[in-house]
Design a protein around this nucleic acid. Structure first.
Lengths: 234, 234
DNA sequence: TTCGTTTCGAGAGCGGCGCTCTCGTCTGAG
DNA sequence: CTCAGACGAGAGCGCCGCTCTCGAAACGAA
């Protein structure tokens, strides 16, 4: 059962792709707020109502773009992790820098996924897989270092609920990370994206703007915080 | 020169206040995206065009709400700092918890100021003062601890640009904080609001949700990170 | 090949939006 | 008292998301 059997199926797949492409183009230029179905249809030479044959609503189209954005940043950090050397701190640094670079080159996509949820609020199940790619890349780096005995920060007791949540994450990801290191990784994850968001949304204007030096410092200090050993880069 | 001399002036001030009040009400219920001038006018029993006598545009009205939101969270953290004991870690904890509590009770206001910038992008000068209240509260806590010789993390050299930016912040705020501690405070600030944003925007669903235990742990670990001495609470 | 079903694009239309302009009216300063 | 300025109401412009209907085209089964 080939996915594209008939001419109709092929045309439908093609048009769906073109709509997403044009929407992504408008998203990159105008931002999610200003993305309009009518403008997408206009650009594609069709009437707006025809677009509803492919996406039932504007929010549905945005959800597809959200998934693409998650996959974009996920692929970027995974590629950076693969290219980085074996040293855990270098890997951590590469992943952090890749996340920031992606956000700076795709600010509206970043805002779409890490900024305000667009309508009232939503989080379809299709997004959780792509959304996990960045934290998994971070956790994998920590897991490898921990497995090699390179995490130097001692474990301390966690609150019971927190330990249980850490166990759930370990179970779900299959990444065997000591719970204390896991929680520190999540803390670093929130710091990383908090700082990138602050940089992109203008909160650092007047203090750490431009943010390059601050960001570099933050990456090293959070690497210390997790317990990565020093390397040649710092 | 009373500010409200004539009846007209008084009526104008009153109506301006009522418009902002109703807008704030709609913002709390619907979020910034769905806030509409027409709905505000409708609720106030006037026609939409009349509203433009008081606010030249929707964005201008939103800017006023942004300032109010900054002042709201700023007042919340300042009150928490004032009520907290003298121990620096307790103060830090109180400020962090107050920021999170404010965000959880005012999610749309939080999204308005710390989420995606609403239109294309903007940051009027009127917002920088109110926006500084939270970081100043954090920095003040660190300054007091440092002045008392209670910051235990040693200073290390900073990159020249970063040291320069730290000096600018010290100059602008008048808060004499060692540059290394200042940068760590900014890092903790980004972590705090990054974590709150992740919690509110659903990024922690499936891992650290509900986030109470995680948040408590993050606050203590970041207090360690800055160098606050332990206290009875941890 | 024929025929009924399904899919599709186009068009008109609904209600809502931000914003502008015009026109009477009312107010308050000189 | 007068007259300039402030004001609210109304109509209207060009957008928007979304719905419904209709005729043509594509399709699968007979």
């Amino acid at each position: 059962m080939n996915a594209s059997r008939t001419a109709r199926d092929r045309a439908r797949a093609e048009l769906t792709r073109e709509i997403k492409e044009e929407a992504r183009r408008q998203l990159a230029v105008e931002g999610a707020q200003r993305l309009s179905l009518r403008a997408v249809a206009r650009e594609l030479g069709m009437v707006s109502s025809a677009l509803y044959r492919y996406f039932p609503s504007r929010d549905d189209l945005l959800t597809h773009l959200i998934i693409d954005a998650y996959d974009g940043v996920g692929a970027a950090v995974e590629a950076a992790a693969a290219q980085a050397g074996d040293h855990p701190r270098a890997r951590w640094r590469a992943v952090s820098v890749a996340a920031r670079d992606w956000a700076r080159t795709h600010p509206h996509e970043f805002a779409l996924v890490y900024g305000t949820p667009v309508p009232g609020y939503e989080a379809p199940q299709d997004t959780v897989g792509p959304a996990s790619r960045v934290p998994i890349a971070l956790l994998t780096t920590v897991r490898d270092a921990a497995a090699a005995g390179l995490i130097t920060v001692p474990e301390r007791p966690l609150a019971p609920e927190l330990a249980a949540q850490a166990a759930v994450v370990t179970e779900a990801t299959g990444l065997d990370v000591p719970p204390g290191a896991l929680v520190r990784t999540v803390i670093a994850w929130t710091q990383l994206f908090g700082a990138v968001g602050f940089e992109l949304f203008g909160q650092l204007v007047g203090s750490m703007d431009p943010a390059d030096a601050f960001f570099a410092e933050a990456v090293e200090r959070m690497a210390d915080f997790i317990g990565f050993p020093p390397d040649a880069g710092e």
